[in-house]
Amino acid sequence: MQPFALIRPTTLLAARDRVHEHPRARLFRAGGVDLLDRMKEGLDAPAELIDLRTIADEKSLRGINPDPAGGCQLGALVTLAELAAAAELDAVLREAAGSAATPGIRNLATLGGNLLQRPRCWYYRNVDLVCLKKGGDACLAVTGENKYHAILGGGPSFIVHPSTLAAALLALDASVDIAGDTPRNIPLADLFVGPKQDPTREHSLGPGELLLRVVLPPAPPGRRSAYAVAKEKQSHDWPLVEAAVSLSLATGVMTQVRVVLGHVAPTPWRSREAEAVLENQAPSADLFRKAAAAALAPARPLRHNAYKLPLAQGLLREALHRAADLPLPE
């Protein structure tokens, strides 16, 4: 790694001011797992890392705390290991957190870093290649090896969003609190920037803005949730496809259904088509099959990733069956 200074600010304002002055040369650092990876690869060469873990005047950066509105707040510095072990959280989030990376990395990696990590696309990660993400004029996956790329919402870049927590959090209607000159709370979905808007970035934070915490609203009565994922390796691998669902079964029919697919699109992909099929219906295997077909109807696979269509349908059906506690048909 190129030499850098390590800054340990004690206040949130000091951390933000420091980065705001030189947003390209000074980077926030939480667990640092993806950041150190990029620095080792030569993709990033900051002059300073601003360590967020020494900030003492913003307690909500750490831990899982009750939210005044009745739900809970997850600090941006909460580790994946802490999320996986938090019995008070919904199954979809615990399962997603516990499935990511390895036990050792889950002890380091944070919620904020997981949401804001850069894509795993091998063209982006190769320092010798100038792809659309790095200011080039073409997404190299279009004509290249695109086994792991997007089948939904792609173009002009065909990355898939790398966060495993994002799909689960979207299924729980999460929002994020952002510290900046104007503090703001935005739906988590609005944190993500698609390639049509700007292919060089994946999030909407401005210079010196900092993701403070994720806010989960109170759960509707009878909420159930599930997470299903397929990977080539069981451990230390990013998903091929993942499905996160939550629904309320308080009245015998499914309400407040949320269907989110991960690793199929440049942003975590909420399928309102599938939700429309399921909402206010009694759970059944046949209905789940229809919902899965509806979710993938808009998909446009590239040369090497058509396998993701049946895989995503299968995982979505599995998650729905588990959330509704309906035995899997096969």
Binding site: F4, A5, L6, I7, T11, L13, A14, A47
Partner: peptide, 15 residues
Amino acid sequence: LDPAAPPLAGTALGP
């Protein structure tokens, strides 16, 4: 980086 930056609330190590 600006050598005349205001004092930092915290510590700086290195490079």
